[in-house]
Design a protein around this nucleic acid. Sequence first.
DNA 1: TCCTTAATGAAACATTGTTGCATTTAACTT
DNA 2: AAGTTAAATGCAACAATGTTTCATTAAGGA
Lengths: 139, 139
Amino acid sequence: MSVDDLLRNHGLKKTTTRKQVLDIYLNTDHALAVADVEEALGDGVDRVTLYRTMGTFEEKGLLHKVYDDDGKLKFSLCSSDCSSHQHHDNHLHFHCRKCGKTTCIENVAVPEVEGLEGFDIQDVYMVANGTCKDCIQAA
Amino acid sequence: MSVDDLLRNHGLKKTTTRKQVLDIYLNTDHALAVADVEEALGDGVDRVTLYRTMGTFEEKGLLHKVYDDDGKLKFSLCSSDCSSHQHHDNHLHFHCRKCGKTTCIENVAVPEVEGLEGFDIQDVYMVANGTCKDCIQAA
DNA sequence: TCCTTAATGAAACATTGTTGCATTTAACTT
DNA sequence: AAGTTAAATGCAACAATGTTTCATTAAGGA
Ligand SMILES: [Mn+2]
Ligand SMILES: [Mn+2]
Ligand SMILES: [Zn+2]
Ligand SMILES: [Zn+2]
């Protein structure tokens, strides 16, 4: 889907910054932090605007949060059925300790949690840490 | 096990601050951030010392890191078989969005990850978010 | 008790994220 | 196409979290 369509479908105004940010995510295969996007845009856009842009994208279901080993916040594109009402990104994530990249493993679902009687589970986050394919091959 | 024994068994000097910090963790059933410990100690101990203390405890296998929903870093007591060589805290964690407490669910193991051929998985972190027992009862 | 090394305190700094307010711009109305 | 309005942006100031350097203090062994 195009950048313009994605923005319209999620009820967002079509601004220059939003189109640029979304374009970056569409052309990257791993999660990006605010600082990464800031660097990719090479100045010209205020840091605060990026924080607000990513926040809005997360609220509206365009991006979902990803945390790596060190609690560093990154964002990844959501699957097509995420909206402002609900996220459906219950897949595994992989964080490579060599290259630092965090990737969505869309085809591995987070397993159901058993044995937690008395708790109300809303969602489960799961991240595997280790060495990614690329870094193994490069070694 | 006593505070003194724990410190000795992990090869750590017995200082006032370390004993106080460890005592707090032994008497709390949920994970605590550096700021939480600082507040519990009520001044007198420098913030930097606490960061270093918790860092050392983590290295030596006395505490393990816990991240909640917002990437906030907390620490929890490790199971008895953690050491500076390796952590064995592969259990589920629960983060309550009402009270904010993060708890170790020692009796629920993190499931093995299937379907990740080509990756080298070192460890897996898993946290369930929702409402805890206490907050459900209080409602 | 003395000595050595590790632990601590203090200050300065870096990074990440938030808030208030003035200005600009997108989308809608006319 | 111009005008209107609410949302988005830029800027400055602030807050929270974490790190680094260096002088001082304290722990544990000799
Ligand atoms: Mn994902
Ligand atoms: Mn735990
Ligand atoms: Zn890698
Ligand atoms: Zn609760």
